[in-house]
């Protein structure tokens, strides 16, 4: 097990370095950074001065090392647009996105897994049909539309919840539902398919032959095996959610990292874009790694391979 974890950790670190290099080179792929910084009207001398000031005249690898070293200490440079340290700019936004992401995936798992299990235990029952309807609707309905419906019904008509902003926990309820509902259908269908598959397996019959009751058969013997692929899926979705949902963040005016990334791209604010890409990728790598470890813990066959 330890060997497995170390192997995956090594792999994750390798991927992280590759990704960091790619996000660093973005600066150069998009043209001369000094010229971009100076603006269209600047003279050649001004551009040169800026080049020296920001160190763009040094070899690329040196610049990368420098940038990575600072980044590891939480220093991502200064935003071209806000003229503020990128780190402090991102910190606020990131916490909004993280709260939303964690709430979203939790909501998705807490609704999708039980629904999937019940649907598999009673295929073609009313609950199975309702679950199917919910999942089809969830996939067909665009998030922005669903979000607007929730705002109209619960914020405007009923007045139960605030329509936008981040001031209290109640502000996060509607965005959580929209984001969670986006992830739910896939989790539910994977849980249902996994349970159906596992329930027809020989070891479930063995469990019953031992005299285990149905609850024990369903949870200890069946769900434990059926949940393994769901873990990987949820981790991937979690990675996406922490990358910020631009749609959900804009509908509910949550100033999160996703929204910031979108704005920064439009503003050509390269240090901010670089930092966000790096952070989003790190989340992704960390969650993939955690999913692998969790999978290995759940599935002993993974540990040896």
């Amino acid at each position: 097990m330890l060997q497995f974890i170390l192997k995956r950790l090594g792999l994750a670190i390798l991927v992280a370095f590759t990704v960091s290099f790619i996000s660093f080179s973005l600066l150069f792929l998009s043209g001369d950074p000094a010229a971009a910084l100076a603006g269209e009207t600047a003279s050649g001398e001004d551009v040169e001065a800026l080049r020296r000031l920001y160190g763009f005249d040094r070899p690329m690898l040196v610049q990368y090392g420098d940038w990575l070293f600072s980044a590891l200490q939480g220093d991502f440079g200064e935003s071209y647009y806000f003229r503020l340290p990128v780190a402090s700019l991102i910190a606020d936004r990131l916490s909004v996105t993280m709260i939303l992401g964690v709430c979203g995936i939790t909501f998705a798992l807490l609704t999708a897994v039980p629904l999937g299990v019940v649907a598999a235990i009673r295929p073609n029952s009313i609950i199975d049909r309702i679950a199917l309807f919910i999942s089809v609707a969830g996939q067909a309905m665009p998030s922005f539309w669903f979000g607007l419906i929730l705002i109209v019904v619960f914020a405007i008509q009923l007045g139960w919840l605030p329509p936008s902003g981040t001031a209290t926990w109640r502000h996060f309820i509607l965005p959580t539902i929209v984001l969670g509902y986006y992830a739910m259908p896939a989790i539910m269908r994977l849980t249902r398919a996994g349970m159906l598959d596992v329930l027809s397996s020989d070891y479930i019959r063995t469990a019953r032959a031992k005299g285990a009751n149905e609850t024990r058969v369903m949870f200890r013997h069946a769900l434990r095996n059926a949940i393994i692929p769901v873990v990987s899926l949820a981790a991937v979705q979690m990675g996406f959610m922490l990358g910020g949902s631009i749609v959900v963040e804009s509908i509910f005016a949550l100033h999160g990292a996703g929204y910031l990334a979108w704005e920064s791209i439009a503003r050509n604010d390269l240090p901010t874009v670089q930092a966000l890409i790096l952070i989003f990728s790190m989340f992704y790598i960390v969650f993939t790694f955690l999913a692998d470890v969790l999978n290995a813990w759940l599935d002993p066959r993974m540990r040896t391979s």
Binding site: D202, T206, A209, P300
Partner: peptide, 25 residues
Amino acid sequence: MRRLRGARMAMIFQEPMTSLNPAYT
């Protein structure tokens, strides 16, 4: 039936490769 199964009457199946739960020791 549950109290009989496993306790007073037990069964061994044809498929040893798949009759044990892969997740438990």
